[in-house]
Amino acid sequence: MSEILTYILGGISIATALLVVFSKNPVHSVLYLILTFFSIAGQYILLNAQFLFIVQVIVYSGAIMVLFLFVLMLLNLNKDTEPQKENMFKLMGVVAGGLLLVSIVGMLKGIGHINLPENPDSQIGMVKNLGLVLFSDYVVPFELSSILFLSGMVGAVLIGKKESTDIN
């Protein structure tokens, strides 16, 4: 049952990712990307990574995509005014992406069998376990990420604010 669900979610994520790239209207692209993120969140819950599921839904599908949609509406780009690249360049992009796919798949074919443990601990994705690891082994990166957020916030405000008050 759940493996069928896994394959269905994989199909949905690939299809919606293609629609993100090829749909003309930017708002449709954003909405398809939200669907892609939800299907990836579904994969997380099938892998029993519940913390990642919640974070994916809240941070990606919630915060980041709403920010994208907000900027799109703010700049009034919700119509297909985007000048398209010439078909030659589009073809080159598709061929380059396809060649990357072929070369990575060819590389993966050479790996052979991957050694994995027989009975992995299924409880590692729980909030309790990840919290214990995060606050014991990863305290320093965790604190550093708060500094990163602070600098990101300051940078976004500094870049985004109107330059009405000139320096001179």
Partner: peptide, 28 residues
């Protein structure tokens, strides 16, 4: 999940942190 090792999932968490900061600055 397949290895039963929590470090990978914490790495995902940190990637999400960096992605959120990147999107804020990028959209600005």
């Amino acid at each position: 999940a397949y290895r039963g090792d929590a470090n990978g999932q914490l790495f995902v968490f940190f990637i999400m942190v960096v992605a959120a900061a990147e999107v804020a600055v990028g959209l600005a």
